[in-house]
Write a protein that binds this DNA or RNA. Structure first.
Lengths: 201, 201
DNA sequence: TACATTTGCTTAACGGTGTTAGATTATTTA
DNA sequence: TAAATAATCTAACACCGTTAAGCAAATGTA
């Protein structure tokens, strides 16, 4: 009898509804306003129900983090595949990263702990590693001399990442600062080009 | 009668005790563990007393933020005054900034919203502007061609700041990542030198 | 069909949070 | 000594995450 499946599908729908509700609350009221009772209100249940789908609040945050990395991974992959040269790929990937951060502020804040209560144990998340691997590979491809020392890739990776993450953080935490979009783009592209150029010189 | 002054001094002592207690709790248990009742416990009062010294919890956070900028300002000023050339000043100042962040993790998290509940309205804080001004002036001094366009200083400022803040954030949020101290120092100094060199070329 | 069991969901509670109002105690002033 | 003022506490409110107990409807079994 297929009713088992129907019920499972319904359960899955509720799970999705919980995640959607959480995201909606965060997007309209900010992370600080997210509460189990508010989520329950939104899905027209009472709070304890949520604990049948997630072990606790952090479980919800963890799942949203995972989803965030999924989207980011897709964006970066698509950016990479639109270009031919290693240099173009590199720039496009980091710009995709940048765009993701501002198109999905709430996700980025959750994933990278900007202006957020940090969910401590998010190391070793598979989706996060995928993003790291893609970017690492793209960096390796920039080197004319192969093979490339693992340590060099690591260094360059952190250099790229630091400047981009730093720029994003500054903009997300202080949205009313004096940084204009043009200024950001200028810094971003200059920095990427600078790091990329320094690789084979 | 000097008792008025004595009482004022006592009040000021309590105020300081509140801030010290808050800092102590945060340093030993983390920001997330900071509560009004815990502060009250530490200073051997009950929670409502605190509201006679600070309008609310955010008031305490704001005052700590101010103190943080004071320390950072002092550190950067001292670093600057220890060197002669504009280049050396620049490097020393950013390294002082870096050292401040790790010697005063809790302050840095509060001031720059890393892994923290952000206190929203901390724009236009005098002490923060002082830090910005000092760094801006140091950047201006790097230029051989004077006078320097305000926009150029701004760009370079954000470039420096982004990479350093980014590197710090990554290290503060993920203390158990694969970044070693040497790697960090390497990235940091390389990046500073790179940006500094790019100024007059 | 009648009973037992499982399922879905709610109410009520616990201990915690920031914050405020009212009562109480201690100190100063007249 | 009595009144006034200051210092401090208790109790409460509304919220938070989370858990336990209970109810009511659906389901399985005889």
């Amino acid at each position: 009898m297929g009713s088992k499946e129907r019920i499972l599908r319904l359960k899955d729908e509720t799970r999705t509804k919980i995640l959607d509700a959480a995201l909606k609350i965060v997007q309209t009221e900010g992370w600080q306003a997210l509460s189990m009772r508010k989520i329950a209100d939104q899905i027209e249940y009472t709070a304890p129900i949520i604990y049948e789908y997630f072990s606790n609040k952090e479980g919800i945050l963890l799942e949203l983090t995972r989803k965030g990395y999924e989207i980011l991974g897709k964006d970066i992959r698509e950016a990479r595949d639109k270009h031919e040269s290693a240099e173009d790929k590199m720039e496009a990937m980091w710009i995709a990263y940048w765009n993701f951060a501002f198109a999905n502020k709430e996700f980025y804040q959750l994933m990278y702990g900007v202006d957020m209560v940090c969910c401590n144990v998010k190391s070793s998340m598979h989706e996060a590693e995928t993003v790291g691997t893609m970017l690492g590979d793209a960096i390796e491809a920039l080197y004319k001399k192969q093979p490339v020392c693992e340590n060099d890739i690591c260094t360059k990776y952190y250099t790229y990442w630091s400047i981009i993450h730093g720029l994003i953080s500054i903009n997300l935490v202080r949205p009313n600062g004096r940084t204009t979009d043009e200024l950001n783009q200028q810094i971003l592209k200059d920095a990427i080009k600078g790091i990329t150029l320094s690789i084979n010189s």
